[in-house]
Amino acid sequence: MMRSIKQQPFRAAVLVLVWGWLLFLVLAPNMLVVGASVMTRNPSTFISLPLNLEAYRQLFNPLYLDVFLHSLYMAALTTLICLLIGYPFAWALSRVEKNRQMLLIFLLIVPFWTNSLVRTYALKLILATNGLLNSALMSLGVIDEPAQLLYTEGAVIVGLVYLLLPFMILPLYSVFEDLRQDVLLASHDLGAGRLATFKNVVVPLTLPGVLAGVMLVLLPAMGLFFVPDILGGSRNLLVGNVIKNQFLDARNWPFGAAASIVLTLTMALLMFAHRLSKRRLGEEGA
């Protein structure tokens, strides 16, 4: 490994770039957030000394616990729906002909080229009372009066699923790609039925992808504050909304920072669990 780095200046440059990126754009800002979270709130300078853990104590206020749990519920529901759609989708994707696969993945990624905020506004136009969906259903005679779709919890979930689904599909697709056909054939040869094969072979082998997908969906789902703002009519708060409110409206930076640290730590915990499970699976495989 070391030798190859010396031999390839390009690779060294990439490593420097990646490490520089991580240090200055990931580690340093996060350290600033950690710093802000242990400072004291100050009305005129936002934050000041002395250092204390007051902001973290405030997090234990039952109100914020409730917001966190509600947020977790919305995010978990989003993740579950993404998984239910994404799992069969990824499986099917891995089964189509190679050339077409590339095209389908391309189509999956294309929406990313448009800013997610703009796409959320587009969803709003579709879901509004006199929006596309309602007018279509009414002209088809399915409903007589426009249904209230926008500014509901359902609209927020739809928005979150729409924005985050690709993050579930891509890691699942990569595990399904590695799932070798002969493993399944072997399972059948050894007398396992379809269900048993799925339960005992497919699920364990794709579990790392499931976990990766869950991680990539669950935490962003708690932070995408503009989705409840636009589609939920600024109701149905997520943790991301609380953080935004604390920074802008209440001007309580230490508290906002502490809330964001807790979110990051939850993420770290999940990643740790993911690694543990991967290692365990790896050992079983060996």
């Binding site: 109100l63 409730d66 917001v67 509600h70 600024s234 109701r235 149905n236 708060l237 909304n241 609380v242 409110n245 604390q246 409206d249 209440a250 001007r251 309580n252």
Partner: peptide, 15 residues
């Protein structure tokens, strides 16, 4: 302002 902010979040989260 802090009192307002507290009740505002309480109101918005519907709890």
């Amino acid at each position: 302002l802090q009192v307002y902010a507290k009740y505002w979040e309480k109101l918005k989260s519907g709890l």
